[in-house]
Design a protein around this nucleic acid. Structure first.
Ligand SMILES: [Zn+2]
Ligand SMILES: [Zn+2]
Ligand SMILES: [Zn+2]
Ligand SMILES: [Zn+2]
Lengths: 141, 141
DNA sequence: CTCCTAATTGCAACTAGTTGCAATTGAAAA
DNA sequence: TTTTCAATTGCAACTAGTTGCAATTAGGAG
């Protein structure tokens, strides 16, 4: 999905198309993976040095609210953002070596079922960072 | 479990018993539930006004590291901490009305099994805040 | 094209939490 | 008891992110 499509979609929900949002979306779409707010600011400022960080954080929050982008805290000190893909996925993160393994949304299907059936609760189980130990680090420890 | 027991256990792991840690643990144990760093500072300062926030955050990080306490971000703007209970539990949080439902650790058993079997990954699935919609808010929406 | 207004921006001040460093102190050894 | 030294604290400066408000602007109506 391209920046213009997101902007069009946002417009239909009553949000405005601004140069800042355009540039921010451009950078997020180009990066293909997880990116921090700070990295977005750095990249946008190469073309438009004036950009204010509030606009970036507010745009990111809007994109998260609308479901276009997933925020994730990998414990590095700043949240990362990624374009939402459907079907979605999760990340296993080794707390020893930092290795990351992508797993598909299906792992949580039994949890979702149980929460719906037993608690009548409709959970959002999108894009988790699940910490733990990878194969190698289990053997070492 | 009482503060003195935690302190003893910490000592055996090479950490020191200090008045600050004693008072912080006292407050966490007394509160019986989730408490924020700021609330801990406020309560300890009633008796010991000098307490510095760095000591609190460092103590909390230590207690999390050692597994005595679980940190959880309920999205209120500051992380909450709770004494670790075994078996552990999770919290369902309604994103509309804020209702919280406690669920036991078992819900994630199938996830843990699958991650171990298919990815050889040993996940930490402790004390999650799972956002979503409660029964009432599903009907409303 | 011009006007209007609510949405958005920039800014500065703020909150939550972290970090480097010098001063203090717990606790173990002598 | 005194000495010793690493662990811990307080402090001040820092990072990530949020917020209130005045100024700007997108975009629709006339
Ligand atoms: Zn991802
Ligand atoms: Zn590993
Ligand atoms: Zn809890
Ligand atoms: Zn609800």
């Amino acid at each position: 999905m391209q920046p213009t499509e997101f902007l069009k979609d946002l417009r239909q929900r009553g949000h405005r198309r601004t140069p800042q949002r355009e540039m921010i979306l451009q950078v997020i779409c180009e990066c293909d993976g997880h990116i921090t707010a700070d990295e977005i600011i750095t990249r946008v400022r190469k073309r438009y040095p004036h950009l204010n960080k509030s606009a970036v954080y507010r745009t990111l929050n809007l994109l998260v609210q609308t479901g276009f982008v997933n925020p994730t805290d990998f414990g590095s000190g700043s949240v990362t953002y990624e374009i939402h893909r459907d079907p979605h996925h999760h990340h296993l993160v080794c707390r020893e070596c930092g290795k990351m393994i992508e797993v598909d949304a299906g792992v949580f299907a039994p949890v979702e079922r149980k929460l719906r059936d037993e608690y009548a609760f409709a959970p959002d189980l999108h894009h988790f960072a699940i910490f733990g130990l990878c194969r190698k680090c289990q053997k070492k420890g």
